[in-house]
Write a protein that binds this DNA or RNA. Structure first.
Lengths: 178, 178, 178, 178
DNA sequence: TATGAATGAGGCTTCATTCAT
DNA sequence: TATGAATGAAGCCTCATTCAT
């Protein structure tokens, strides 16, 4: 995808069309304008979250689920394409409300699932949250994303960052060794 | 600053010049090009960090310093202008190495100071870090920033996010009540 | 008809097709191209002239026929749709010969009928033409049209322009009161 | 001027710029948009009317002035460039109010001068108008224009049309031989 | 050093027309 | 015959940058 290589604003509609294998004119039969192409991509991103949500909602011990989730989600975000796309979308969402809404709707789905997991963990005595489950869920996600940005923009290796991240998060949510 | 209102790519050099009170032609006597204006802004951002670094390096009990830092830095980032500018710069830094370098140099200064504080806290038995001080420092900053993005893009209130953030961080770094 | 509302060049073939209740593709089964749609409209305009020609060719006193004709033809042209369409066609006819020919063929039919009426009037001693009947016929039509353009573009009321027009024409053709 | 050769809508801004000897970009330093180029041309057309107005306002016998005016104005309009430009402007003025206003303002100047001349002729007993001087002025102009359109679009020769036109007009305004 | 008119490549989008179904 | 998705040239306009003054 050329938004990744060139960035949304640097990419011309001709490039988009060419990469999509459509003629320029036909691109406009599918999208009202360039902006809507990004919107559609953001919409597709939503589907990529489904496996993570599914993972969070599976049965089983909360700490194990949590650890697993952190690992796979971090690895997913460590792919430059995912981070860069997120940044492009975020950056555009600042001034385009429709993108903004979509952005938060996507995230809300993830937050909700993670919140439920944390809640369950608290009820089982597995976690000792320093704040509400929902707030904690937000922060967990933000931290994972922060690490991902670091790994991509700063060219660190997520592989090396992950243990520290997990330890930090475990401490933060008061995860108990069993 | 008009990059805030309109975004880097949507802002024309004429707007930049007008806002700066310089003539268009003269802008080019000060900067080789549009990109370099952003570079200069990123350079100026560095100075804005000085007070926070100073705060981190003051004497006094580490936990108190830490708490204070989190509060003021979060409040600083909660200003939309700071978040938006950071996003604009980040987004541009993806594909412009000079900006990228600057971005990381700026952050390194903050990380270094925070690392030292955490280190001191560990040595004093105030903190119980789940990972290396430097890694922890990175994560602390990333979490604060994550919350800031959330507050600005999602229109939450940092005032309300701050207690949860502090609690989460305290738990994460094993801050001990005294 | 959308050429009226939007103008020939501002109207897309899709609009034409939609308004005509035909599919876009099928429009091209009926017309070789956009231009030919206008050509066909000009062709249809010819039929609209038939009643006026019939009126001119009826028996009866020439001055009465003439007065009647001026009244109904002026009223017909006072409808914005007729004036606008004529202007669109004229404007296009400048550079499209087929339209131009059609335009003059339409007019010739009217001129011929009016010429005959004037001729008859002269023979009967009802009119005292300052020039040849045919030339006079042209000028009569041009004046009626001029008034119509005025009424439509300048938002005057044809109702108010008509008496002056008739008086002017009567004087011009030397119509005698009986 | 390329609007003459190609028509306003068929002419691209690049052609306009090229013909004007300006770069495309610079065209937009002088005009907000394509439409405004036509507007400016209409504005310039106003100046072309000045000699005719001056002629109408000179002293001397009204019939002679009138005859002279009809001759020169008809000859002026007989130039295809003037007729075509007028048609382009008229056609555009239908849906663009600013052009419409300009169009009528231009004409009003001519009408006013001609009205005064006719008035004077009436007072001197030279003319015997069948209607108000102003109405007559409008019609005189419309008829001259009608003949001009005829001569240009129909490829008649104004030289041949002029005597008939003058005779027709003389009859219409009741001009007396002295 | 300061100015802003000039440049022209490139921006996004529309549109008449074609053609596979 | 009827459809509308596909085409890509051409549409108008913006913009970073240059340069004569």
């Amino acid at each position: 995808m050329c938004f990744l290589e060139t960035g949304f604003h640097q990419t011309g509609v001709r490039d988009i069309a060419a990469r999509a294998g459509v003629s320029l004119g036909n691109l406009y039969n599918h999208f009202p304008g360039k902006h809507d192409v990004l919107l559609e991509i953001a919409r597709l991103e939503r589907q990529e979250l489904d496996p993570f949500i599914a993972l969070l909602e599976k049965d089983g011990p909360a700490p194990k689920r949590f650890g697993k989730f952190v690992g796979v989600y971090a690895k997913y975000l460590a792919a430059p394409e995912n981070v860069i796309l997120t940044i492009e979308i975020t950056s555009e969402a600042i001034r385009k409300d429709d993108l903004g809404e979509l952005f938060w709707k996507n995230r809300a789905a993830l937050v909700a699932a993670l919140t439920r997991l944390l809640q369950r963990g608290v009820e089982n005595g597995d976690f000792n949250l320093p704040t509400s489950p929902e707030e904690a869920a937000h922060m967990v996600l933000e931290l994972i994303e922060g690490r991902a940005y670091h790994s991509v923009l700063g060219e660190a290796k997520m592989r090396k960052l992950l243990p520290g991240l997990k330890a930090f998060l475990s401490a933060a949510i008061g995860a108990k060794a069993r």
